[in-house]
């Protein structure tokens, strides 16, 4: 474990806490893409298949459980919670995310570390996570003004993989045979997808204005 990875995991946890706060405090999920939340639930379920078989540390296991449970709880909440589901922007959240699942799985069948179920699902989860934010970014552009908590949620979600990139660079230089090319390249793509969001988020912070993404 290094400081970059810890910072990344804490930022990722922060994004989930901010989203939970928004949904429970405001009893609303307006501006949140259910499709992105469903994609994240698939990412964690596909990546943590080793939850019950491999034990690295208490921290690793606890965080995996937190990510799986929180992502499923958010999807459940947005689908079935009486008050919250009414605030879901159904007509704006129209990204065809099934293509992202299909494309990521096909890519995992081609590029993986080993042709085993575990490794193919792991690569699938890495590729899917890289594009999982797309429905959310599209929804933000369509819904015009973005409330603070939603903006912070997306910001932390984008920042966490940026810390992971620093972690991979650090491990590359400090560990002999460290070659996480699948995760590193995918992580770069993932962080790059947030570039324009980060730009407008920074502008709104600098001008102390409401975050608005150009349609």
């Amino acid at each position: 474990m290094n400081i970059f990875r810890l910072a990344g995991d804490m930022t990722h946890l922060m994004s989930i806490l901010v989203l939970l706060l928004k949904i429970y405090a405001t009893k609303s999920c307006s501006g949140i893409s259910l499709k992105t939340q469903e994609l994240y639930a698939v990412v964690f379920l596909a990546r943590y298949l080793d939850l019950l078989t491999d034990f690295f540390s208490l921290y690793n296991t606890v965080m995996k459980v937190v990510f799986i449970v929180s992502s499923l709880a958010i999807v459940w909440c947005m689908r079935y919670h009486r008050a919250v589901r009414r605030t879901y922007d159904r007509e704006l959240d129209t990204f065809r995310h099934y293509f992202l699942i299909l494309g990521s799985f096909v890519l995992a069948l081609i590029f993986h570390e080993k042709f085993t179920v575990r490794e193919i699902f792991w690569a699938f989860s890495i590729y899917l996570e890289a594009v999982a934010i797309l429905p959310q970014l599209v929804l933000l552009q369509r819904s015009g003004n973005v409330d603070n908590l939603t903006g912070q949620y997306v910001f932390f979600l984008g920042a966490y993989r940026g810390f992971y990139i620093l972690n991979w660079i650090y491990r590359y230089f400090t560990e002999a045979h460290f070659g996480r090319w699948i995760a590193s390249i995918s992580g770069l793509v993932q962080t790059a997808l947030y570039a324009d969001f980060f730009y407008y988020y920074f502008l709104s912070w600098k001008n102390n204005a409401k975050l608005k993404l150009p349609a």
Partner: peptide
């Protein structure tokens, strides 16, 4: 088990 095949990151 070889280290690199196991994914120790979240």
């Amino acid at each position: 088990v070889q280290k690199e095949s196991l994914h120790d990151e979240l």
